[in-house]
Amino acid sequence: MGRVSIEEVSLEFRTRRTGTIVALDSLSMEIPDKQFAVIVGPSGCGKSSLLTLVAGLNDASSGCCRVDGRVVNGPGADRGMVFQSYSLFPWLTVRKNVEFGLAVGGLPAPERTERALRHIEAVGLSGFEDAYPVQLSGGMQQRVAIARVLANDPEVLLMDEPFGALDSQTRSIMQELLLGIWEREQKTVLFVTHDIDEALYLGDVVYIMSARPGRIIDTIEVGLARPRRYDIVTSERFVGHKRRVMASLHSEVQKTMNLTPPDPGESGSTS
């Protein structure tokens, strides 16, 4: 089970120059078990901060996150995270990287090797078990990171712009790969991105987040049939959703850049 509840979470931090900054403002979200939820928002809106709160890597100023009713109180193996920066251990081979979570969890060596090899195969990296991360391309490194988190069998997968550093061809291959894995493994996913196509292509639900202070300004039930093929991006329903997300995000991005929106009537409703 992996039901994630985010209950009126606020995050503030103080800087010497600008005083108190409200990154997240009383934000609530309910993600049912096995749902693929995507948060899309302008950069700096606090969407990555929200992930670190669910991961337990950071403490909320108020409110709390729960996984299956249990209050998040520090990081744990039940919530696996994938970062944009791959963050593989450069001194470990691909196989040892994938085994890391199992090793710190105390699983006996033969068993963890067997499980690691299975997940390396699932991301199509058989033959690279003994390679070091520096020997791999960015896309391959991120596949190792995904295999590493899945080998640990978490209930919730937290993904912080995992494909943000990849070129667009590799990115779309990775999205397809991730969907295939998700359909097989059936895990709750909380995925953060600023790429609208990516959000709609992957998600069951897409949450649109405002610029600072971060709030949810719109929620889209994507409702596209699964398994999805990449050509759904041209379907009418997809394009309709995309228009809606773009309209909300456009004025938010302008706000973060201190530009006045050309149509104040549209953005006036959120402030």
Binding site: L57, P75, G76, M81, F100, V104, G105
Partner: peptide
């Protein structure tokens, strides 16, 4: 961070 989320 990634180590903590892997259970270390």
């Amino acid at each position: 961070k990634v180590s903590y989320t892997l259970g270390a």
